[in-house]
Amino acid sequence: MIDLPNDLPVVNRRAVRVVVTDGTDRVLLFHTRDPDHPRLGTWWELPGGGMDPGETYLDTAVRELREETGIVVTADQVGAPTWRRRASFVHRQLRHVQDEVVVAVRLEGPGPDVDETDRLDYEREDYFAFRWWPLPEVAASRDRFYPGPLPRLITPFLAGEEIDEPFELWS
């Protein structure tokens, strides 16, 4: 059993994160903050989110990518959930405990600008920028990321390695 901080009400959920790469080997990341927790500063985060009732990981990946970025893909463009992880973090007034899978989506050509039309209100507040990062820059970066070990794990993940990450108490 994992000892969690007793700081906020806990919500348990399943979630999907998406490593979106473009034809120039760059990965899409959101520059993020939590207005309720300024002590956390800012970080770079993969698109993704919680699974709705009845959704598969494919359904969630396709929906979250469209909602958060405006990028429309089909389920057959979503890779297998070969990176599995469990993490906890605070967001707004809840402590999330998530069982996550990370999947890959490869786009042709250079990555498009992000379209915020279908974002939820809190996403419009939390995500204040985006960037298509060259993969070697992610791997070498000392910036803060979610998932935390993204710089170390993105290259093996994209090379097809199976990753079962230990629990991460992110915040």
Rank of each mutant, 00 (worst) to 15 (best):
E64T: 07
L8I: 04
D34W: 11
V97C: 07
H37P: 05
G111N: 10
P149T: 01
I71G: 08
R17T: 12
I2G: 00
V101N: 02
D121I: 12
E68N: 04
E165T: 02
R66A: 15
H91T: 03
L120W: 15
E165I: 00
L150T: 04
D126F: 05
E165R: 06
P147S: 03
L46A: 05
G79L: 08
P5F: 02
P134W: 06
G50A: 10
Y127N: 13
F157W: 06
V105F: 00
G48W: 01
R39S: 13
R17K: 09
Q93I: 09
V101Q: 01
Q98S: 12
R124N: 08
R92E: 14
A140V: 07
I2F: 01
E55C: 00
R86I: 03
P110K: 14
R131Q: 15
T74Q: 14
Y146Q: 11
T82A: 15
A139S: 15
R144I: 11
Y146R: 05
P151D: 03
R95D: 01
L28S: 05
E165D: 14
N12Y: 11
E100G: 00
T32F: 13
R85D: 08
A15N: 05
E45Y: 00
F167P: 06
E165Y: 02
F157L: 04
E137L: 15
E125Y: 09
F145C: 05
E100H: 07
R152S: 13
T117C: 02
P156M: 13
A159Y: 01
D76A: 08
P166V: 10
L8D: 06
F145Q: 04
R142T: 15
H37T: 05
R86Q: 13
T117Q: 11
G111W: 05
V20K: 02
T69V: 02
E68F: 06
L107T: 10
W170I: 07
Y57F: 14
W132R: 12
E116A: 11
R85E: 09
S141P: 11
E55M: 01
E116C: 09
S141V: 11
T155S: 06
D3I: 14
T56R: 03
R33P: 07
D76P: 02
P156H: 00
D126K: 07
P9L: 08
R131M: 14
D121R: 06
L158T: 13
R144S: 04
L29F: 09
Y146G: 00
G109F: 07
P149E: 00
V78T: 03
L94W: 15
V73I: 15
F128I: 06
V102Y: 07
W44A: 10
F145Y: 14
D7L: 14
R92N: 02
F167T: 03
L169S: 13
L28R: 05
E162K: 13
P149W: 05
H37G: 03
F167H: 10
A75K: 09
F145T: 06
T74V: 08
R144C: 05
P134L: 08
H96N: 13
M51R: 07
V73Y: 06
P35F: 09
A80F: 03
D113T: 09
P38Y: 05
D115N: 15
E162I: 09
F89C: 12
P110V: 14
A15P: 00
G54L: 01
